[in-house]
Design a protein around this nucleic acid. Sequence first.
DNA 1: ATTCAAAATGTAAAAACTTACAGGATTCCC
DNA 2: GGGAATCCTGTAAGTTTTTACATTTTGAAT
Lengths: 342, 342
Amino acid sequence: MAGIEDVAKLAGVSTATVSRALSGKNSVSAKAKAKVEAAARELNYTASASAYTLATGRSRNIGVVMPFVDRWFFSVILEGIETELIEHGYDLTLYNLSGGADQRRKIFFEFLNRKRVDAFITVAVKPSEDELQQLAIAGIPILGLGGPISGARTVSVDEIGAGRLATEHLISLGHTKIGNISGTPASEMEFHQPNLRRQGYLDALKASGLTAHDSWLAEADFTIAGAYHATKQLLGDPRNAPSALFIASDEMAFGAIMAAKDLGLRVPQDVSIIGMDDHDMSEFFGLSTISQNVRQQGSNAAKTVIDLVENLKDGQPVNVEQNREWPGTLIVRSSTARPPRS
Amino acid sequence: MAGIEDVAKLAGVSTATVSRALSGKNSVSAKAKAKVEAAARELNYTASASAYTLATGRSRNIGVVMPFVDRWFFSVILEGIETELIEHGYDLTLYNLSGGADQRRKIFFEFLNRKRVDAFITVAVKPSEDELQQLAIAGIPILGLGGPISGARTVSVDEIGAGRLATEHLISLGHTKIGNISGTPASEMEFHQPNLRRQGYLDALKASGLTAHDSWLAEADFTIAGAYHATKQLLGDPRNAPSALFIASDEMAFGAIMAAKDLGLRVPQDVSIIGMDDHDMSEFFGLSTISQNVRQQGSNAAKTVIDLVENLKDGQPVNVEQNREWPGTLIVRSSTARPPRS
DNA sequence: ATTCAAAATGTAAAAACTTACAGGATTCCC
DNA sequence: GGGAATCCTGTAAGTTTTTACATTTTGAAT
C-alpha cells in the first residue's frame, strides 16, 4: 500500500504539496498538481481515512440509527440516504436498534464515543435525555427524521396534515361513514406517527361536521395480518359498517383490501380504502394513498446533514432548531370511489 | 473530549498502561486495572477509532456491498449482519450499488482504498476482475454471499437443491403438470439465482420421468406485478393449465396467488402454488415455500467474516476457498395440496 | 538475604495524514 | 531594475493511540 510519502517521492515534491494538491483546497501550481495527480494515479493512492480523521477531526462518515432496517419505510429511506452520501464522498455507518435495549445502550454509549462519525441521522428514534446529553458531550450533531427532537434539526412529514388529506378525499367523494385503523401503541414508532394520522382523520371529520362512530375505529398491529383481522371486524356487520376506511399505512391497507375481498365486498364499489406511504406495491393493488416521497426524504436528510457538518461554527452547528416539514400528496388510484347508494 | 492522556493522569499511570488495561490483552496488575477503569468511566472515555486504526491497522469495521437495500431479501440479510457485528464490537458501513455504474466505480476504486474497512461482505454482487484485483492490492479480504467468487470465501444457498426440493414436494403430492415462473434475465441477480432454481425444477421433473410443457414455463419481472401477469397467462387456458406452480420467489408467488383468485381458481383446491424464500408475509398468505433462513445467513456471514479478519496470517486470510452451502428447508402451508381429480 | 525469573510499567517511536509557519520564487507595478 | 505583494513549497509539529524495548518491581526459590 502506497502512502503519501511514496507519492511525494515519485512526484518529486514534499508530502505537504501532495496533500494540498489532492485536497484541492490550497494553492498549488498547476505543474505540481499535475505531477502529483499522475503519481497518485500510478500508485493507486487514496489518503487513509484514519490518518485523515486523526489529523483533521473530520471523518466524512455519517451514522444512521433506525429501529429496523427490514421494514419497507426504513429500507427505502436508508437507500435514499446512502445514495446521496456516496455522491458527496461520505460513508454511511449503520446502527440498527432491533437488537433490543442492550444493543441500544452499546450504540449510544460505546460506539458513539469512538468519534467515528461526523453526525448522526436518527430515523423514527427518540433519543432519551441521557442519550442526547451523550451526543452533546461527544459534540456530534444530530438530525432527526420523523419527529421533533429538542435541540436538534429535524425533518419530518406533517402526519396530521396527511391524515386530514386522506380523510378529506373520502369526504369529498361523498362518504359520511368513514372508519379508521391505526397502529397499536406497542407496534408504533417512538413518535407515534400513526396516532398523529388518526388525529388528522378526526380533525377532518370534525371540520365537516361528521362524527366517528366507535365501532368504525380499530387499532391493529402494523402489518398486513393485523389490518386484515381488524378489517374483518369493522366490515363484518353489514348493517353498521363504514363505507370507507382510512388505514394508517399502505402495508396495512393491503391486508384491508384482502379482508374486504374475502368478505365478498368489492373495492371500491362497496367500500373505499385509502392508505398512507405510497408503498412500492401500492400501484399494483390500485391503492389510493398519501405519498410521503420516502426516498427523497432520505436524500434530503443526507443533504441537510452534510450541510450541518460542513458549516460548523466553533464546533457547533449553525441554524439549529430549524424544523422542516414535508407535506404529503394525495395519489388517487382505483381503491376509492363514491359510496354505494344504500 | 477526554483523551488517553487524561485518563492516564487521573489514574496515575502511563498511557501505555491505560491502553493495556482497557484492551485487556496484556498483563496489568489488578490494582492498576481497577484505577484505569474507574478513571475511564469517570471521564467517559473510549479510544478514538481513527487513532486505534492508525496504530493497529485494524478498523473493527466491515463494509457491506449490495445492489439494493430496499428489497426484502437484502434488507433482512443486512439486519442479520448488522446485529451480529454490533454484538462483536464491529461497525458496519454500507455501500449500495443502486446508484449505477458510476457509483459502483467510486465505491470500488475510491472508498475502498481509504482503508476504512477490515473486510467486505458482498451480497449477490459479482466483482469484476478489475475489482477483485483492486481488493487484492488493498489487501482487503472478501466474503461473498449468494454466489461463488474465485479466490474468496463464500456462503451461499444451494439454489439448485432448493428448486428441486420445492418441485419434489409438488410431485410427491401427485402433481404431474407442474409449471414454473422464474425471473427475467434483466431482473436477475448477478449470479442468476432464479435460473439455478429453475435448473433444480427441471432436474426434479427429469428424475421423476416428467416433462415440462413449454406453455407451463414463464419468465417475469421479480415483483408481485410481474408474476401476477405471468400467472394469468399460464393459468388462463383451463384445458392446458398446469395444476401446480413453482415460483422463483415468495414475493412473486403472492402475485401468483392473487392472479389465481382473480381467475376464479381456488388455492390449493384448483391449483397448488409454492414459492421460495420464506418471506415475512408468507405465513399470512399461507404460502408453502422453501426457507432460506435469510436473517441467519446474514449473522452467519458476519461471524465468518470476523473469523476471517481475526485470523489473518501474514496479512492473508487462512482457509481461503472454503465455500459453505446452506440447504433450504421445506415449509408446507396451505397453498399446496393434491391435484384436483379431473 | 540473595538470586533469578516473571510480571508490571514506563519511554518513546511509529502509524499516515494535515497545516501553521517561514522562507524562496514569481509576478506586478512604477 | 527594484521593491512589495503574492504565490508556492518545504519543514516540522500535531492529531491519538498501540506496542517494542527497556527498566523496575514482585515473588519465589535457594
